[in-house]
Design a protein around this nucleic acid. Sequence first.
DNA 1: GTTAGCACTCTTAGATGCCGAGTGCTAAAT
DNA 2: ATTTAGCACTCGGCATCTAAGAGTGCTAAC
Lengths: 344, 344
Amino acid sequence: MLTERQLMILKAIVNDYITNAEPVGSRSVSKREDINYSPATIRNEMSDLEELGFLEKPHSSAGRIPSQKGYRYYVDHLLSPSKLSKRDMSDIQTLLTNRFNEFEQVIQQAAKVLSNLTSYTSIVLGPEVFESTLRQIQLIPISDNQAVVIIVTDTGHVENQTVHFPGTLESAELEKVVNILNKRLRGVPLVQLKEKLTEEISSILKQYINQYESTVEMLLEVFRTHQNEKVFYGGKTNILSQPEFHDVERVRNILNIFEEDALVSKLFRSDDHGLTIKIGEENHFEPFADCTIITATYSLDGKHMGTVGILGPTRMEYPRVISIMDYLSKDMTKLLTAWYQKNS
Amino acid sequence: MLTERQLMILKAIVNDYITNAEPVGSRSVSKREDINYSPATIRNEMSDLEELGFLEKPHSSAGRIPSQKGYRYYVDHLLSPSKLSKRDMSDIQTLLTNRFNEFEQVIQQAAKVLSNLTSYTSIVLGPEVFESTLRQIQLIPISDNQAVVIIVTDTGHVENQTVHFPGTLESAELEKVVNILNKRLRGVPLVQLKEKLTEEISSILKQYINQYESTVEMLLEVFRTHQNEKVFYGGKTNILSQPEFHDVERVRNILNIFEEDALVSKLFRSDDHGLTIKIGEENHFEPFADCTIITATYSLDGKHMGTVGILGPTRMEYPRVISIMDYLSKDMTKLLTAWYQKNS
DNA sequence: GTTAGCACTCTTAGATGCCGAGTGCTAAAT
DNA sequence: ATTTAGCACTCGGCATCTAAGAGTGCTAAC
């Protein structure tokens, strides 16, 4: 168990290191207003804190920096959540009062605001596909042998896809197909579409449609392509302005990750409601060994919808970022609810 | 006018510098098999070439490196186009034999192949909006007050957009609107849609549709949002592996540009048929002051469609990149033509 | 016209030494 | 029993110096 004084010192060191990015020495700790001990006393405590694993030394005659365990303890027990500044709040509000037609625009905006406010990199995941269900499906022929399939989900997400198309299918038949699909598939989760198609629909289609085989094949093709949830970024290169990421090689590794949306989506998805903080190796991902990821979820009727995330150095402005993320994710939930009521 | 020998030397220096990224000295030039002069002679010639502006010295006792003018001369007069290796050709072919439904998939793939083969960053611009015309427009209501508008262009590009929608419009009326639009707007360049709508269509709609005002407004909204041509990237971070871009600040400037598709599209668009090479300041864009951009266009029936581009250091493997770009752009044209014939 | 020779320049890498920040320990002060 | 002052010690960072090496430019000889 840490003593009161050790807590004060640990907190002081983390705060100091977060803002200055430089090892903190005993002298500078002892100079703080709320701490009235001599450097020597601080030194002894720091030595103990190091032994306990909360601090570490870059080298023998430097100050101390927080270890991963130190950050973790700080986040769990020491952190005093900062009040959002008026400015920050109004920035977020501005974003959310913008007119928008598609929910994606909000998500996009959210990513932008988040990275601007924090100067870290933001990642916002759109509604997760496997959660959403089909609201409507449409087939529009655009040439002799091509058609566009439009899928609208219950979350208002619209997706289109061009497919090869049995040219011989007549428009009357086509309409029949669309009607059957809409009747039978409305409300079905996207991930189950394929299954449902083979099990139920295909036999029904057989009754009504001549070209049923090629039609089913086409639909399978549509449903197969696993529609990944979209990923939106803000401030991809912000990480470059952090002093600990001045090494080109390391930066490259991280930037490359952003090119693979599927991977990013896996790394950042969070299913916990509320805030999740993963520090350094807690991410279980080598390139993020000295990064912290903070995620929060936004939801609809208590149903988890998507994730907003921040990627920064472990030396992150935790209090500020946490407040911002909390505020933003809650506002997104509100906005989403309002939007959904209006358009459902 | 440069002498034969000066040409040889200039060429040798550029080639050497391109591969080794280090200033070239007189000794190493004189060691080349095709050059049989002593270092001293080479030195004199190099001194002359410097005076003429084709070479420069990083500092007084280093070798020479090509100046921008030197690269330009090299590209214009000295460059011997390299035969594509079997391997490269087959890589490109593989890409182009992939099945694909949308032309965008080819473009995406092209960007990937291009960056893989060259290890520079590739930028491929999709068909330019202001060139393409409307083939078909569709309106699909998806809720009481929302609809999806689908626009299909003559190039097979499909675009969807969600709009607010006068809820009172009945489906019979809706159909009428769609019919009128398709009849009147087919073949009209996308950029002229707005104009055409206000000048012609709106009065026609007035005759048939009750809710004509809000409908026109909605359509204007759709046509207003300038649908930017899409930009596809390959190897965004490749630039980081070039030794001349090991400075984080400069790299950041360049990477940030990639976040603004509109800007990239402006910088890389090329209207010339064939290959364009812009070296350093020829780009008239400060962050690209030591970059070379090579672009080539792909087309359809001789009509310019889009651009493939490469961004690398001025010290670029010109012969190889040029061959690859030439080959790829021609193949894309071929593929596009075939695809278009099949699907028009 | 070409080249060998040589003095000169300038970068780079290592070595050296010093400064300052910071520690750890001990012994004195509270 | 804490706390603190004092002091020796450590180590990175910085500036200075040196030697090596690569390359040039000039001159004089071929």
